[in-house]
Amino acid sequence: MNRNMGSTALKRLMTEYRELTLHAPEGITAGPISEDNFFEWEALIEGPQDTPYEGGIFPATLTFPRDYPLSPPQMKFTCEMFHPNIYQDGTVCISILHAPGDDPNMYESSSERWSPVQSVEKILLSVLSMLAEPNDESGANIECCKIWRSDRKQFDAIVKRTVRKTLGL
C-alpha cells in the first residue's frame, strides 16, 4: 500500500477520468493525451448555447502537478480564444484554478479558489460558465475586456470569427 504523492495523484486522476468517461457532463470531453502520461490531459469544450461561442469546439490542455489534487492544474486553450478571462497565449484565468496562496488579481475571495475537493469536471464546468459570463473585473486580455465592455457587437463578431477559425471554416 504505497501511497506516496505521485501515486495518489495518479490514482485520483484515473478515478476522475473514469468518472468523466462514464458520466460526461454535456458539452465537455476530457481525458489524458496518452495513457503513459496521466498528468497531461486534453479537453474539448463546446461553446455554450446563446453565447457568441455557440457552435464552437475549443480544444485545451490541462497540465496537472505531481501533488494534484493539493495543487490545481493549469489550463490552456490550444486554439485562438478571444475572451476577457483568457490570456492571449490561451491560459485560462479563473479563480478555481488559483491556489488560495497566490492571487494574481487580488480580488478573488478564497471561497471560489482551488481546493482538493474540486475536480476536473468542476473546472471544466466553471470554464463553460466563464465562456457564457465573462468576468470583466479580472481581465486577462485587457484589449478584449475593453471591447467587451464598450462594444458588445464588435466583441460578438470577433468571437464568431475565432469560432469559425477553430472549426477550420
Binding site: R3, K11, R12, T15, E16, P69, P116, V117
Partner: peptide
C-alpha cells in the same frame, strides 16, 4: 460516496 475521502476519492 460518503465512505470516500473527498481528496483521494478512495
Amino acid at each position: 460516496s460518503h465512505l470516500r475521502c473527498p481528496i483521494c476519492k478512495e
